[in-house]
Nucleic acid binder design. Structure first.
Lengths: 126, 126
DNA sequence: ATCTTATGCATAAGAAAATTATGTAAAAAC
DNA sequence: GTTTTTACATAATTTTCTTATGCATAAGAT
């Protein structure tokens, strides 16, 4: 019998995270030579002070997809008696990463236009 | 025979929009007495300069869900020969709207921590 | 010593939330 | 009079995640 520790405890309704996972992965990898899956979850958790916690069930399939799409390459490395799978960006992956991050920035700017809406601003057009 | 005009043309990969729809709806309604579905799509398009375009297939089910959950109430109004369905926030809906918007703001702040990451910052912990 | 937690990968079942497509119908614009 | 816009709605499908399951080694606690 085995026990699995809980790994979900973001302070946000997780819905918001949807659609941002791949961008997060690509950004993380674009700031490092290479990282392995578990390491990515830990770094993201650390950087966001525990506010964003990637789940394995989402992370690994996403990594596999990105690799299949040619954005990532892998290198296996044995540490002690265990195998780590290091991911790094391909050339395509690198430019895609920049694109996706830019897109996310712009999207966040656009969202602000709605979030910072006041009745006055809305009234102009009603 | 009828023809349906295309209504999808956001400048963003639509993925990013996922999870933000309800928050957007609630925010729009919190800045207005009441709005009807089509009006919401038009206002959002206008405010975001065409960058965010809500689709009917997503909007209406979301509105129905929010109503079923007690966040919205509806009033039907006949204009000419057609019926408009005006939505407005309930008391619960109002506080929920504030909550969701706050959550989105905080989430965006957290995302920034990742997006603005530099190799130096990441290196601290690698 | 042994039990638990942490590390490290992976995949499958199910849910949630969207896209896409379809449908109706009146009003306005051309 | 034909097309576009306004205005609703729902169903089929896809995408993307959560949740659960599974295996296995290493480290830390008791």
């Amino acid at each position: 019998m085995y026990k699995k520790t809980m790994y979900i405890c973001t302070m946000y309704s997780k819905e918001l995270l949807k659609g941002t996972l791949k961008t997060i992965i690509l950004k993380m990898l674009s700031e490092s030579d290479s990282m392995y899956g578990y390491q990515i979850t830990q770094k993201v958790k650390e950087i966001t002070e525990g506010k964003i916690v990637l789940t394995e069930g989402a992370l690994y399939p996403a990594l596999h997809k990105l690799e299949a799409d040619g954005l990532l390459t892998t290198k296996k490395q044995t540490v002690g008696n265990r195998v780590r799978k290091y991911y790094s960006l391909t050339k395509t992956g690198n430019s895609d990463a920049k694109e996706k991050v830019e897109e996310l920035k712009e999207f966040m700017e656009t969202l602000k236009a709605i979030i910072n809406l006041t009745p006055q601003k809305l009234a102009w057009s009603i």
